[in-house]
Amino acid sequence: MAETRILDHIVHLSTPGELEKGISHFESLGFIVLRGGHHASGLTSNALVIFQDGIYLELIAYDHPIEHYPPDSDDRKKRESGPWAHLPPGWIDWSHLGLDVRIGEIINERSGDNPNVPDAVRYIVPAVAGGRERIDGKVLEWVVTFPDPKHPRGNVPFFCQDITPREWRVPQEPKSNIEHPRTARGIAKLHLLVPQEKFPIVKQQLTQVFDFEPTASPSHAEWPLLTHSQDQHLTAHLHLSYPTNEEQEAHVKSGGSGVWEVSFWVEKDHAEDPAVVPGFGRISWEALP
Score class of each variant (00 low, 15 high):
residue 138 K to Q: 15
residue 167 E to C: 10
residue 181 P to A: 02
residue 217 S to I: 09
residue 132 R to D: 03
residue 127 A to V: 08
residue 194 V to H: 04
residue 165 P to A: 02
residue 133 E to P: 00
residue 129 A to D: 09
residue 128 V to H: 04
residue 201 I to D: 05
residue 199 F to T: 03
residue 148 D to W: 05
residue 140 L to W: 12
residue 191 H to D: 13
residue 208 Q to D: 11
residue 181 P to Y: 05
residue 170 V to T: 15
residue 195 P to Q: 09
residue 168 W to K: 00
residue 140 L to G: 05
residue 126 P to F: 04
residue 178 I to V: 14
residue 127 A to C: 14
residue 136 D to L: 00
residue 168 W to E: 06
residue 172 Q to E: 09
residue 151 H to P: 00
residue 125 V to T: 14
residue 125 V to Y: 06
residue 207 T to Y: 14
residue 212 F to V: 11
residue 152 P to V: 02
residue 147 P to G: 03
residue 178 I to R: 01
residue 137 G to Q: 06
residue 156 V to E: 01
residue 138 K to V: 15
residue 148 D to F: 06
residue 119 D to F: 10
residue 158 F to S: 09
residue 167 E to G: 00
residue 195 P to M: 01
residue 187 I to A: 11
residue 138 K to P: 00
residue 149 P to C: 05
residue 172 Q to V: 13
residue 170 V to Q: 08
residue 205 Q to L: 04
residue 185 R to L: 12
residue 160 C to T: 09
residue 128 V to Y: 02
residue 190 L to G: 05
residue 119 D to R: 06
residue 215 T to S: 11
residue 174 P to R: 05
residue 212 F to M: 15
residue 166 R to D: 12
residue 132 R to H: 05
residue 190 L to P: 07
residue 138 K to S: 14
residue 211 D to T: 02
residue 184 A to M: 13
residue 149 P to T: 05
residue 170 V to E: 05
residue 157 P to K: 13
residue 146 F to T: 10
residue 129 A to Y: 02
residue 119 D to H: 14
residue 180 H to T: 03
residue 202 V to K: 07
residue 190 L to S: 03
residue 202 V to L: 11
residue 207 T to Q: 15
residue 181 P to C: 09
residue 161 Q to W: 08
residue 141 E to F: 11
residue 136 D to Y: 01
residue 202 V to H: 10
residue 169 R to M: 10
residue 198 K to A: 12
residue 129 A to M: 09
residue 163 I to F: 02
residue 186 G to A: 10
residue 182 R to D: 03
residue 203 K to V: 03
residue 116 N to W: 13
residue 137 G to M: 04
residue 180 H to P: 06
residue 130 G to P: 10
residue 162 D to F: 10
residue 198 K to C: 12
residue 193 L to H: 08
residue 212 F to Y: 15
residue 162 D to N: 12
residue 116 N to C: 10
residue 144 V to W: 01
residue 143 V to K: 07
residue 158 F to H: 10
residue 161 Q to F: 07
residue 184 A to W: 10
residue 138 K to W: 07
residue 120 A to K: 15
residue 168 W to A: 01
residue 148 D to E: 08
residue 209 V to C: 04
residue 189 K to H: 12
residue 125 V to R: 01
residue 177 N to M: 05
residue 161 Q to V: 03
residue 211 D to M: 07
residue 193 L to C: 05
residue 128 V to P: 00
residue 153 R to D: 00
residue 160 C to V: 09
residue 133 E to F: 00
residue 155 N to L: 13
residue 143 V to P: 01
residue 200 P to V: 08
residue 115 P to T: 04
residue 124 I to S: 07
residue 143 V to F: 02
residue 131 G to P: 08
residue 146 F to N: 13
residue 166 R to S: 09
residue 124 I to K: 08
residue 157 P to D: 08
residue 122 R to P: 00
residue 196 Q to V: 02
residue 183 T to E: 02
residue 115 P to D: 05
residue 189 K to S: 15
residue 176 S to F: 00
residue 195 P to F: 02
residue 140 L to M: 10
residue 155 N to T: 13
residue 118 P to H: 03
residue 167 E to Q: 13
residue 158 F to D: 06
residue 122 R to F: 08
residue 171 P to C: 03
residue 216 A to F: 03
residue 166 R to M: 13
residue 141 E to D: 07
residue 141 E to S: 12
residue 193 L to P: 08
residue 199 F to W: 11
residue 182 R to S: 14
residue 132 R to P: 03
residue 150 K to C: 01
residue 175 K to Y: 09
residue 147 P to W: 01
residue 208 Q to G: 04
residue 214 P to L: 07
residue 209 V to G: 06
residue 139 V to T: 07
residue 205 Q to H: 01
residue 151 H to F: 05
